[in-house]
Structure formats: structure tokens, C-alpha cells
Write a protein that binds this DNA or RNA. Sequence first.
DNA 1: ATAAATAAGTTTATTTTATAAACCAAATTA
DNA 2: TAATTTGGTTTATAAAATAAACTTATTTAT
Lengths: 97, 97
Amino acid sequence: MFQPLDPLLHSELRLAIMSLLISADEAEFPYIKEQTRATAGNLSVQLDKLASAGYIQLEKTFKGKRPCTICRITATGEQAFRAYIEALKSYLEVSKS
Amino acid sequence: MFQPLDPLLHSELRLAIMSLLISADEAEFPYIKEQTRATAGNLSVQLDKLASAGYIQLEKTFKGKRPCTICRITATGEQAFRAYIEALKSYLEVSKS
DNA sequence: ATAAATAAGTTTATTTTATAAACCAAATTA
DNA sequence: TAATTTGGTTTATAAAATAAACTTATTTAT
């Protein structure tokens, strides 16, 4: 009946992050922050969670002299995202007679 | 960009409840419990939250001598559910080039 | 030169939420 | 009549989301 929803993706902010990253090859921390309108702290925590699960990869480099965190989705993450969408459909297919 | 997701609906169990109720005119507590595989306690709490928000209506009657809780979705709830689906789309439309 | 403000985050603390365990009352079965 | 089941509710706990506070370094203003 209802397929379980990956709790890591069933979160507004993490879903937004994954949505951004699946459409872009890479994105920097401030860009994601701006697009999601998240606070830096919240974003940092959620990026770490996604990275710990292997759904994204974080590259901490420098842009000139300032720190710069580049985020990329992994193959695992992309697969999980697509699976999540499939699972969601089991809740959304409204067959109102 | 990303539309906010109604926190009342962005919950696996509550979403399942709403999904069931939007397709059925009414459903009894034990049926929802069975379909969602939720514990009675969790289901009771989540039904109350949806009822408090006016998304569903709970009718406490008797079936013979046993108590029987009948659940129905309201117009408000149906509208919220549809709005939630629309909002979700802003996260799911993957335009991978 | 140095003080104030900004950038880019991280860490920690707080609030909220989900979930199950424990409980209750009545009815049924052994 | 004792134990079990049904149909829940209430309460306690575990997990999660979120923001506030903090850090380090860099600009910008005075």
C-alpha cells in the first residue's frame, strides 16, 4: 500500500538541497543557503547529514582566501532521490471516484 | 523557487491518513491502523492533530456495544492536501540537462 | 592603524515532533 | 471468573529540526 519514505529525504530542507543538487552539477554553500532561505547553521547540519549518508559529497576548498564549500550529489544520492519520488507516489495517487 | 510544505501534511503517517481519506468517503480507526501499519497510540495522536487543524472530522460512535471512531476528510483538508501536492512539485521537477 | 562589519561556516542549545509504551474501559472467550 | 481481545487515550521518550551563539578570517570605514 504505502511505501516507506526515506526519513533522510522526507525533510523540507534536505529535500530542497537534493532537488537543487540533482539539477546542478555542483553548488556552493552560499548559493544553496540563498535558494533555500535556510540559516547557515541549519544548512550546515543538514548538509552534514546528507554527506554522512553518502547522498552528497562536500569539498572544502578556498575561493581566493575565503573558505568555500562545494556540494555535489552522488550516484547513491541520485538513486535515493528517485526512489523517494516513487515512494511518494503511493501517497499521492488520488483515485477519487 | 521552493514552496513551503505544510508541516501538518509533511509527515509520513499523517500523509497516509489523508491519502486514505481522500479516496474513501469515510474510514474507521482500525481500518486506518491496519492500512498504515501504525500503532494505535501514534494513530490516535496524529488523527487528533489533523482534526484540530480541521483537516478531518472524527465521529465517535458505537458499533454494537464497542466504540467506533469514524474519520472523514473535510473540504479544508482536501484543499490542503491538493495544495501540498502542488507545493511538493516544486521540489520534484527534476530538469536534469 | 585599528575598530567595526561582513563572509563562511561550525557547534551547541532549544524547541518541536514523532513514536511507542503504558494505561483504561468494556466486551468476549476459555 | 479469569484471561484475552478490542478500541482506543494519555503520557513518556527518543529523535529531529531549527536557530542562536560562536569562531576565524577578511574587508571596509575612520
